Amino acid sequence: MRPTLIRLVEPSDGPALADLLARDRQLRARLLPARPAEFYTPEGQASVIASLLASHGDGLAWPGVVVTDGTVIGQIGISSILRGPFQKGYLGYWVSSPHEGRGHTSRAVGLALRIAEDELHLHRLEAHTQLENLASQAILRKHGFRPWGIAHEHFYADGAWRDEMFWEKKLSAAMRRPVH
């Protein structure tokens, strides 16, 4: 088993992410929104990373990459962080197709849960999966997420509105007082 790490995304990750996203573009068309061609270039990813790091600086996100053997193989992040009475964020992740089925995604989710609790002090994490994405649903179940509803025609991708299942996980940080 190869080790899996996650870390905060860095500007220098742009070329690697562009390469991974471009390679899997057609494979993931059903799962991701349509993007302009420049999104799949190092320059496009540099712009995305700058925006993600700005959100991180504002306390609204924790944008990371999934790494094995010193190589970026995907992304993981906690976005749309809400403070006050909510103390929650949304978990999103992907690993490039050559690295799927090797446990990297599941290990990355486990590491992101630790960050959500220990660094971000969140009470709750949520995630969305398309109904057909059984692999992602299995990972969420393994890490204690529970499904709590289905949003019909919730997400537009690959020319159609897609139904999505909503997932939730209460974190042990729940015993802490809200951070404002």
Rank of each mutant, 00 (worst) to 15 (best):
G144C: 05
L52H: 01
L5K: 07
E43F: 02
T68W: 07
E43S: 12
R102W: 02
S55C: 08
P178Q: 13
I78V: 13
D24W: 11
H121F: 03
G77R: 05
H104K: 06
D69N: 12
G144K: 00
S106N: 06
M175Q: 11
A37N: 06
L140R: 00
Y156S: 13
E10I: 00
R2L: 12
P63H: 08
I78D: 11
D158M: 03
A174T: 00
R28I: 08
G101V: 02
I81Y: 05
D158E: 14
A108T: 07
G74I: 09
H121T: 06
F86T: 03
H104G: 09
E168K: 00
E100H: 03
H154A: 15
G74T: 09
A138Y: 04
S47G: 12
I81C: 10
R162A: 12
V9R: 12
L91H: 00
T41N: 09
D158Y: 05
R35T: 09
A151G: 13
V9Y: 11
L134N: 04
W148M: 11
A50K: 09
Y156H: 15
G70D: 13
G92N: 10
H56A: 15
L21G: 01
L131I: 09
E119N: 14
T41W: 05
G159R: 04
A135L: 06
I78Q: 10
D19L: 10
E164C: 10
T41E: 09
N133F: 03
P98V: 06
P147T: 14
G74D: 15
G110I: 05
L82A: 15
G92D: 09
A174C: 04
G77T: 00
M165C: 14
W167V: 13
Q137D: 08
G92L: 07
E126W: 01
F145P: 11
S12K: 14
D118E: 14
D118I: 00
I115N: 04
Q130V: 08
L122E: 08
L60R: 15
R124I: 12
